[in-house]
Amino acid sequence: MLNKSHFAFLDEGSKKEIRRTILKAVAIPGYQVPFASREMPIARGWGTGGLQITLSLIGKKDVLKVIDQGADESVNAVNIKKLVQLTTGVELTEQTKTATLIQSRHRIPEVPLTDDQILILQVPEPEPLRAYEAKKSVTKLLHSEQEYSGAWLMLFEQIMKYGTISTGADHPVYVNDRYVMAPSPIPRFDNPKMNQSEALILLGAGREKKIYAIPPYTDVASLAFDDYLFRTEDFTDKSCHLCGATGVFLDELIDDHTQQKLFQCNDTSFCMERLNSTQKEEVGSIDA
């Protein structure tokens, strides 16, 4: 028996079902549309939802970028890229602006996305109400009735207990004034990038078998109160120790030698580009 691999791995029937689901998801922003979700050659929970979307979208002319935790070279990102390239032969890139499809886990790139790009986010848990309701049949009902008092109560309890909203990543958002949605475990820092985004954003949860979407130019508001505002992670007075960037999401590192705390751009390709452009300025255009 020989290895035979179909273009973009999935059989055409599976792609059709995923494509129909994506169109529905776009038509009902923030609503989790169920889909069959095929088993992929990478493990469930490792980006199979995003991967199935990518494989159903991708064509020969696409340029693909995959990042995991902001990094192009993260092992899981490399592994996903490898699979897509093996079955499609598409061009890969690390530059955000040259990519037509960007599959990402836990980050939205720092470089603003444009309207000829599609961002595909991997989602481990698509249900924003799961934290207080375990049953799928119940959360489905709550969404249908737009009954989100539980989500508000969760934030309220945090304020009562801690004096502030204490959510980490995956802070819930309100989409198009209708559905409360899990933005996937992106940091709160990235939530505002979803609002009125130029690029289409598709979210895929393979294990939980849900696809949902934020069309371009759609209202996306992070859940918060008038007197307790939504707060992104705070990097005031901090900058990247490599490229000097401020106002971006930073990773916190401990220097091996000095035991000092260091900060570094989480978006590795963004940092690299900045480094290269400053170098260009310094040395002129000799070997650019």
């Binding site: 273009f7 973009a8 792609k15 169109l23 159903s56 979208l57 064509g59 289409l200």
Partner: peptide
């Protein structure tokens, strides 16, 4: 395979 992919992207 490829035409359908292109058609779908236009529809999307």
């Amino acid at each position: 395979v490829h035409d359908m992919q292109a058609v779908f992207r236009k529809l999307l």
